[in-house]
Amino acid sequence: MALQDQLTADLKTAMKAKDKISLNVIRSIKTSLTNERVKLEHDLTEDDEIAVLSRELKQRKESLAEFDKAGREDLVEPLKEEIKIVEKYAPAQMSQEEVEAIVKQAIADTNAAGMGDFGKVMGKVMAAVKGRANGNVVNQTVKDLLK
């Protein structure tokens, strides 16, 4: 469980440096991982860990959009720092070209002919990208390529 070890080491470093933002984010991630482990009733696999990190990242990005829209600059900057910290643990995001290549392969594999096959293609693509691509980007790419 390399992620847990990394989080624990970074937690100690943040404590020593008195870095409150990092400390809070790392504690939040550790708590989410623990809650997920309890919910699933087994040790987390790498895919489970990626799902938790993706959820943490998505929540923060959604909050950032809301705070930005509301003009709450006092909350935007700390949240951007939190996002950077979570991204450090999450897998690197795929480029648009990589997503397109996976979508094209999924369309070929499922013999998709149009928007009626959208669900089949999305299911195959989301399983392939698993936390490495934003669902909205994948959704739009599939729509564009199935037209």
Rank of each mutant, 00 (worst) to 15 (best):
R132I: 08
D109N: 14
G116P: 02
V99N: 02
G119K: 14
Q93V: 07
G123E: 03
A127H: 03
R132W: 02
R132A: 13
G135H: 13
Y89T: 11
V99R: 03
A90R: 08
I107A: 10
A101I: 00
S95N: 01
R132Y: 03
A92Q: 10
V86S: 07
G119A: 14
A128V: 08
V125T: 11
V129C: 07
K88R: 14
V86A: 06
M126P: 08
G119M: 10
N111M: 04
T110E: 12
D117K: 08
M94D: 01
K124E: 15
V125A: 10
G135A: 15
A108L: 07
E100Y: 03
G119S: 14
V99A: 03
Y89F: 13
Q93S: 10
E98F: 01
S95D: 01
A108Q: 12
M122R: 13
K104I: 07
Y89S: 11
R132K: 14
A92G: 00
G114K: 04
V121F: 02
A133F: 04
V137Q: 01
A112D: 13
M94V: 00
S95C: 01
K120R: 13
I102A: 10
G131M: 05
V99E: 02
N134Y: 03
I85E: 04
A133L: 05
V103S: 07
G116A: 09
D117I: 12
D117H: 09
V121W: 01
Y89G: 12
T110M: 07
A106E: 10
G116V: 01
F118T: 15
N111L: 04
G123R: 01
M122K: 14
A113D: 02
A112K: 13
K124D: 14
M126K: 15
A133C: 10
K88M: 09
A90I: 13
V103T: 06
A101E: 01
Y89P: 11
Y89Q: 12
E97C: 00
M94C: 00
A92M: 01
K88H: 14
M126A: 10
V103Y: 05
A108E: 13
F118K: 15
I107Y: 09
A90W: 07
G135L: 15
Q140H: 04
A108F: 02
G114Y: 01
N134G: 08
Q105W: 03
M122T: 12
D109A: 15
V121M: 04
E98A: 11
V129T: 11
N111S: 08
M115T: 06
R132C: 11
V138Q: 07
A112R: 12
V86I: 15
I102T: 15
